[in-house]
Design a protein around this nucleic acid. Structure first.
Lengths: 250, 250
DNA sequence: TAAAAGTATGCAAATACATGCAAAAGTTAC
DNA sequence: GTAACTTTTGCATGTATTTGCATACTTTTA
């Protein structure tokens, strides 16, 4: 049996079943597991498969969202992500909303962080699933199409029985006087429930959104524990926030 | 024996068996292996064959695997999608599993169908969300990273309180004797719960998976209401299935 | 946290390869 | 026909690849 022949069979097997076990292949192809492992290494180097402990899996199945859609204010969001991640500690249970900033955070979580992440966003869930050491739990429910997060009574219900250490939310509007605001009633209900559930609340937002107000109120500024933007905490933009006890500026 | 004569025979042999071994050719053509190697080198230089260690292989046989982003057996899956969609009626509540075939179905749902879709897969949920007229509900839970579907007790629980009209599942193994099989225990539990919940069960699979068996049993064939493949129902592949009352072949 | 399963590494045997060379076979020119 | 030439072939040599095993190490699981 030629090596390339084995490779072909392995690829086919992975395409059929999305994954293969080294032990199964070894028996099926009548070669030692060492040889199979070498085969899998080669195929992985060629980028054809994704090698995992015990075998290999389909790459397409695992990395569905390679589509590079440019994110607005990406650099700012990466700065924000770095700051937020400094709040993450081992063993924490962290609840995340959706949105591009939160996605950026999810992408940049350190590989060695051990924590449990809850989210109401399928996109965030899939991004989080890329990290080996974290457990991902989706709070399911009716999927609101404009925001791509789960909403509805079942979500509120479910959130009521969770006690995360930290809750990360994006926001559409934020201002001293009107607090956090948004324009989607269903989304607002979910965010309220998330804030109620969590021990600490971090709001992430690009500075551009400061002092903008939307139609529906979510909460007062003083209910936010951490406020994270791309600007340094001593930026003049935050002059009005500095006297308040909360939120802590990052 | 002329060189060109050998070349023709080698090409013929490769077309017939997709591969040749230098040792076999040497014996068959009564020349030294060195000569065979030189032959193979020449044919490879002309781009007619793919030379590999130990012999040569058909080029067409090897090439299809450079596009790693193309879903395996995409055409077949689109045919399957069309057939399954014929089962969808207005107002139905339809429960979907995950996997590439199911994704293909989700993509091809007619724009005007009004229905409610439940799914345990974040990917499928996001795909379904692209459709205006359907309601999407995610059954949330712990996200199993290898399969990218929600698993665990909460999912089983939630499924227990749902009564979908139709349930669409992919499968890794399917055979007359061993029924539906898979290799992931958590996934199997979820699929079992899905089948229990639904009034009707449709299994979608490319014909290639027929008569393959995985380690863990999900259900007997007779528990499946519709069996959907890319082949016509009267294909000889289904000879053994034809006498059974269920499943209905599509 | 200990056992089990899976992995990486070095090594040796077997096999396959490229290369140079000379003999054999085929070709051309006279 | 045969000398001069080119091409092809087999062999010897040294090199490279492949493979299974032994070993030590890491990850996973219970």
């Amino acid at each position: 049996m030629l090596k390339e022949e084995r490779h072909k069979i392995i690829i086919k097997e992975i395409n059929l079943h999305n994954k293969v076990l080294s032990a199964d292949l070894s028996e099926h192809l009548q070669v030692s597991e060492d040889t199979i492992r070498r085969d899998l290494n080669e195929l992985a180097e060629q980028g054809l498969i994704l090698k995992v402990h015990g075998g290999a899996m389909s790459k397409t199945f695992h990395y569905p969202f390679n589509g590079q859609n440019t994110v607005y204010a990406l650099e700012a969001k990466q700065v924000i992500a770095d700051k937020v991640i400094s709040l993450f500690k081992k063993g924490m249970m962290i609840l995340m909303e959706g949105g591009t900033t939160i996605m950026e955070i999810a992408k940049n979580i350190p590989a060695d962080l051990q924590a449990t992440f809850l989210t109401v966003s399928p996109q965030v869930a899939l991004e989080l699933a890329e990290h080996e050491n974290i457990e991902v739990i989706t709070v399911g429910g009716r999927l609101a199409k404009n925001a791509n997060i789960h909403t509805g009574a079942s979500v509120i219900n479910e959130l009521g029985s969770l006690k995360p250490d930290l809750c990360i939310i994006g926001t559409n509007g934020i201002s001293i006087n009107d607090g956090l605001t948004d324009s989607d009633w269903e989304v607002v209900q979910v965010i309220k429930a998330m804030m109620r559930a969590a021990a600490n609340v971090a709001v992430v937002t690009i500075a551009e959104k400061f002092n903008s107000v939307q139609k529906i109120k979510i909460a007062d500024i003083k209910e936010v524990d951490y406020l994270v933007t791309e600007l340094p905490p001593d930026s003049p933009v935050f002059a009005a926030y500095r006297d308040a006890e909360k939120p802590v500026l990052l």
